[in-house]
Design a protein around this nucleic acid. Structure first.
Length: 381
DNA sequence: AAATCACGCAACCGCGACACA
DNA sequence: CTGTGTCGCGGTTGCGTGATT
C-alpha cells in the first residue's frame, strides 16, 4: 500500500496561483516561517496541497529571487556546474544565489541545452549526447574503471578550467559573486551592498512586482482584493516582506536588511486608494510608494505593507520561525559555497597537480562522481 | 485578421531521502 | 529495526503568449 498522494483530496485547487493566494501564503509564512507545509493549507484555508504551497514559496515568493535575464556569467556558471554536477539543479542553484533550481532547470532545458547542441553540431561531433559528465555515463560501461576515472579527472579538470575562466570574466575584488553581473536594475539598487542586502531588497522587489502586476492585470478584482488586503491587514497588522527582526515580529513591523545605502521606508497604503492600480509605484529598490505616501511616510499604521529598513542584520534565530530557510539558503549557499568555490579555484592554481593527485588518491569517483556537491568536494582539499 | 506553430515558464507528479515514533 | 509521515528534488506537462504563415 503506497503513500497517498498529497494532492489526491478533492477540493484541492490546482493550476496557477492567484495573487490572493500568494498574499495569504506570504502572510502566513511571514508570521510562522517556512516549514510545516503540511499545516499551511489547513491553517490558512488555502485550497492547495502542501507541496504546492512549498513550491510556490520556494520558486516564486521566497525573498531574494531574481527572475529572468540570466547574465552571461550565470549562463556560464550553469553550463560548467552542470558539467560538474549533472542535472542536480538544487546543487547548481546553491551556487547561483537568487536563482531557483526550477528556474535554472527551465533555463537549461529551454536555452542552454539547445545552445550546446548547436555548438556541438558546429564543431561536428554531435553524438546525440548532452556533453555532460552525467550524460556521458552511458558510455562508461564501454571503458574500464581506470579509464573512466581518468576521463572523469580530465572532465573535472576541463570543467574547472572553464569555470575559472568564467569566474575570471568579471572577477573583481568585490567581496562576493552574488552580485556578479546582476541585471541593470540590481546594479542600480545595490551599488555597494552586502549580499544579504541584495537578497532582501530584491525580495521586496519581488513582492512589489507581484502586487503591481496583480493590480495591473486584474483591475476588475481590485475592490475585492483590496478588501482582502484590508482583511489581512487587520489580521496581520502589517504584512511584511523580508527577514523578521527578533525584536518586533509581534508588532507587525518588520526590519529588513536592504542595502546599506538603502534606508528608505518601504510602505504601501491602499486603504484610502479607490484606484490602487493607478497609484502604486515601485521604485528600483523595490519600494512601494503611492502619491500619498510619497509625501507622507507616516501612514498612521494604515498601510498594508510596511517594511522598515535597518542597516543591522536580522536575527535569524530559528525560534523566531521566520525565514529560517532563507537564512540557510541565502547565508550559507550564497556566501560560503561561492567563497569556497573561489578559494578552490585560486588554490587550484597553486597546487593543482598536488590536489589532483590527492583527488585521485582519495577516490575522485566517490566524491564528485558519487553525488557530492561541489562544496562538499572542496572539503576534500 | 485568423490560424497555426514554437517557445518559455509555472506548476504538477512521482520517487527517494530523511526524521521520528 | 521498521513503519509512517513529511520534505525536497528532478522530470515532465500544460498553458499562455508571441511569432509566423
Amino acid at each position: 500500500m503506497g503513500r497517498p498522494p498529497c494532492c489526491e483530496k478533492t477540493g484541492v485547487k490546482k493550476g496557477p496561483w492567484t495573487p490572493e493566494e500568494d498574499i495569504i501564503l506570504v502572510s502566513y509564512i511571514q508570521e510562522h516561517g517556512p516549514g510545516n507545509w503540511r499545516n499551511i493549507p489547513t491553517n490558512t484555508g488555502l485550497l492547495r496541497c502542501s507541496k504546492s504551497c512549498r513550491l510556490r514559496w520556494t520558486n516564486y515568493l521566497r525573498p531574494g529571487i531574481k527572475r529572468g535575464n540570466f547574465t552571461e556569467h550565470e549562463e556560464k556558471m550553469i553550463i560548467h556546474l552542470q558539467a560538474l554536477l549533472g542535472n542536480r539543479w538544487a546543487a547548481i542553484a546553491s551556487y547561483l544565489p537568487q536563482r531557483t533550481d526550477n528556474d535554472i532547470k527551465n533555463y537549461w532545458n529551454t536555452h542552454l541545452k539547445k545552445k550546446l547542441n548547436n555548438n556541438k553540431k558546429v564543431e561536428g561531433h554531435d553524438d546525440n549526447q548532452e556533453g555532460t559528465s552525467a550524460s556521458s555515463s552511458s558510455s562508461q560501461s564501454k571503458i574500464s574503471k581506470g579509464q573512466w576515472e581518468r576521463r572523469l579527472q580530465t572532465d573535472i579538470h576541463t570543467a574547472k578550467q572553464a569555470l575559472c575562466d568564467a569566474l575570471s570574466l568579471d572577477t573583481t575584488p568585490n567581496n562576493n559573486n552574488n552580485s556578479n553581473n546582476p541585471p541593470p536594475h540590481d546594479q542600480e539598487q545595490q551599488p555597494s551592498s552586502v549580499q544579504t542586502s541584495t537578497t532582501y531588497a530584491s525580495s521586496a522587489e519581488n513582492i512589489a512586482k507581484l502586487l503591481q502586476n496583480w493590480m495591473k492585470n486584474s483591475p476588475k478584482s481590485t475592490s475585492s482584493s483590496s478588501s482582502k488586503i484590508t482583511q489581512m491587514s487587520s489580521l496581520n497588522n502589517n504584512l511584511s516582506i523580508g527577514a523578521v527582526s527578533s525584536s518586533s515580529p509581534s508588532e507587525g513591523t518588520v526590519n529588513v536588511t536592504p542595502g546599506q545605502g538603502l534606508d528608505s521606508l518601504f510602505s504601501f497604503n491602499s486603504s484610502n486608494n479607490s484606484d490602487v492600480s493607478q497609484s502604486v509605484s515601485v521604485d528600483e529598490g523595490g519600494n512601494f510608494s503611492t502619491p500619498e505616501n510619497h509625501n507622507n511616510n507616516n501612514n498612521n499604521n494604515s498601510g498594508i505593507f510596511q517594511v522598515e529598513s535597518k542597516p543591522n542584520l536580522p536575527d535569524f534565530k530559528p525560534e523566531n520561525g521566520n525565514f529560517q530557510v532563507e537564512s540557510k539558503q541565502n547565508m550559507e549557499t550564497q556566501q560560503v559555497p561561492l567563497t569556497m568555490l573561489e578559494k578552490w579555484l585560486l588554490d587550484d592554481a597553486n597546487a593543482q597537480a598536488e590536489q589532483e593527485d590527492q583527488l585521485m588518491g582519495i577516490g575522485m569517483g566517490m566524491g564528485m562522481g558519487m553525488g557530492m556537491t561541489l562544496a562538499e568536494t572542496t572539503d576534500l582539499f
